[in-house]
């Protein structure tokens, strides 16, 4: 793995990023570079700014100052076409956010057909293949309300992959799931990671982090407190805050 540096531009590059919600400094001087094909897990206590961090990458949140460069394009720059950039970034939500009036297949093909302008037949073939890949070949015509949480989240992942993105962002993808459904979603995420996708994953699933992440970033109170390989972070956390956090999530 290459070491990120100020001079080189990663796939996702935070340089001194700050963000406020009113008087609250929710992102404090964030500097972080994610290389192509790298998988970074972001963890930290509730309210530490980890969701906000990845929501900035596709512009669901805007930053106040500092630079955020994604796929070579600076966010907030007039020359950056945000809508176009977003087609390169898949985003998986905690609450799935599938379109309830569309079938699983239609959820997957909607943006490819209307945004990417892929011919319908081609998009549907790709959509069927993707749904088969996430283990839902038999649910192609099911509506979200007919699917379990784990199945919905797998459709949501397929929906992102349908756009053939360069980056995938996951915002606590398993937090809204019943325990027995978590592994089916994590398995899909592992498969996506192993295909070389650049990923940032906000999660407390430490098994997933150990398996596929090259780096774990620990956030607290809007700042990156610690960053390292999963082994180093889990076995020898360097700060009191990360130790306290790990003791809480690993105890049960």
């Amino acid at each position: 793995m290459s070491t990120p540096s100020q001079a080189k531009t990663g796939m996702i590059d935070f340089r001194g990023v700050n963000k406020w919600f009113g008087p609250l400094n929710v992102l404090k001087d964030i500097t972080l570079s994610v290389e192509p094909r790298e998988v970074v897990v972001v963890c930290g206590p509730s309210g530490s700014g980890k969701s906000t961090l990845i929501r900035c990458i596709n512009g669901l949140e805007t930053i106040k100052d500092g630079d955020l460069i994604v796929d070579g394009q600076r966010l907030g720059d007039p020359a950056t076409n945000m809508t176009l950039l977003r087609t390169e970034i898949g985003f998986v939500f905690q609450s799935f956010n599938l379109y309830p009036h569309k079938t699983a297949l239609e959820n997957v093909t909607l943006a490819p057909i209307h945004v990417r302008k892929i011919p319908r037949a081609e998009a549907e073939q790709a959509g069927r293949d993707l749904l088969a890949k996430v283990g839902l070949a038999d649910k192609v015509n099911a509506y979200p309300s007919q699917l379990s949480g784990g199945q919905q989240q797998r459709v949501a992942i397929a929906r992102c992959l349908g756009m053939r993105p360069k980056i995938m962002l996951f915002d606590e993808p398993t937090s809204a799931l019943d325990p027995e459904m978590i592994s089916e979603v994590l398995d899909v995420m592992v498969a996506v990671a192993e295909e070389g996708m650049t990923m940032m994953v906000v999660t407390h699933e430490m098994g997933f982090a150990r398996k596929v992440a090259q780096r774990v970033v620990f956030m607290d109170a809007g700042a990156i407190v610690e960053s390292g390989t999963p082994e180093a972070f889990f076995s020898a956390p360097k700060t009191d805050r990360s130790r306290a956090f790990l003791s809480k999530i690993l105890r049960h």
Binding site: N58, G59, L60, T83, L84, R86, T87, I89, G90, F91, F93, S95, N97, L98, Y99, L110, A111, H114, V115, R116, R159, C160, M163
Partner: peptide, 14 residues
């Protein structure tokens, strides 16, 4: 729900 708008935004829809 707000998430529906965000899902559309995130997939590059105008």
């Amino acid at each position: 729900p707000r998430g529906q708008v965000e899902a559309g935004v995130a997939s590059g829809m105008t």
